[in-house]
């Protein structure tokens, strides 16, 4: 398993204010979505690769592996855009294609162009999100959400789900170990049976846990809201200035590229 969570707590940018990291990631992502030129998307991919590998010191191998994750479904998605179907041909625009009983299936120049645009745009946006999730622990992302005044219900759910993913994982692992030590996964038949029992046991345990958690919270004066205080982070003026410069440079580059003045 790729330990994104682990890197979030140990990377070089851990001490940077989460709001600064979130601002960097999201402004870049919006620019990436807003402007469609593949060249610009590639600039963003490179920028984020530098931030992730060069600044946060995430191993290159981990970065490449993560970037390859969306490739499979991205290629399928992009393929459907690259390939066009028509009943009356594409004329000169068609680069390649076949005709089956009057229906043209072919690749056009514009189709290919928008497919490439979408491909790089998606990778660019994904790398922005990777930057945030690799450098900022989930807890701090929740702090950012709190600062941005996102509804409490949403924040509390995020917090609880994140916490209990790990409790559930540990429980599942314990059950799995105890099953396999008793030949629970020795044959296909045993495996099917054991997996079913594991799932059922997890549901029951999850329910039981929610009850004991509620008891424990009530005994600390829970009144329907999970009030917590975030640790105090230090704001870095230098970081904010750098982010502002990088983002405005990106925005100007994007506008210039769109106007066709350079590149």
């Amino acid at each position: 398993m790729l330990n994104i969570d682990g890197f979030a707590y140990t990377n070089r940018l851990r001490q940077v204010h989460p709001l600064e990291k979130a601002a960097f990631a999201f402004i870049t992502m919006f620019l990436c979505i807003g402007f469609s030129l593949p060249v610009f998307s590639c600039i963003i991919i490179l920028l984020m690769a530098y931030a992730i590998i060069g600044l946060a010191r995430i191993p290159m191998k981990v970065y490449l592996k993560l970037m390859s994750l969306p490739l499979s479904f991205l290629s399928i998605g992009v393929l459907t855009i690259a390939v066009s179907i028509s009943t009356h041909g594409f004329g000169a625009a068609q680069l390649a294609g076949i005709t089956i009983s009057g229906i043209n299936i072919g690749i056009t120049h514009s189709g290919l162009h928008s497919a490439a645009g979408l491909f790089f745009k998606s990778l660019g946006a994904v790398s922005c999100l990777y930057f945030l999730s690799l450098t900022t622990p989930a807890v701090e992302i929740v702090d950012v959400m709190r600062k941005l005044k996102i509804p409490a219900l949403f924040i509390e759910l995020t917090d609880l789900i994140y916490r209990f993913i790990f409790v559930m994982l540990a429980t599942a692992e314990d059950i799995y170990t105890s099953q396999s030590s008793r030949w629970g996964y020795a044959s296909l038949k045993n495996s099917m049976k054991s997996l079913g029992q594991l799932t059922a046991a997890l549901f029951i345990k999850a329910y039981h846990r929610s009850q004991t958690l509620f008891t424990a919270l009530s005994s600390r004066g829970y009144n329907g809201r999970l009030n917590v205080l975030a640790p105090e982070y230090t704001v870095s003026v230098i970081n904010i200035v750098i982010i502002a410069i990088v983002e405005s440079t990106l925005a100007i580059t994007a506008i210039l590229l769109e106007m066709g003045k350079i590149g």
Binding site: P137, A138, V139, D159, L160, Y162, R163, F166, V167, A170, R209, T212, L213, T215, A216, L217, R220, G221, Y222, N223, L226, N227, V228, L229, A230, P231
Partner: peptide
């Protein structure tokens, strides 16, 4: 594990006194 509800130690401890 049935008492700790937050993934952050600091936030976890702040819950009671905030209430």
């Amino acid at each position: 594990d049935s008492q700790l509800f937050s993934a952050s130690v600091y936030q976890e401890i702040s819950f009671g006194p905030l209430n």
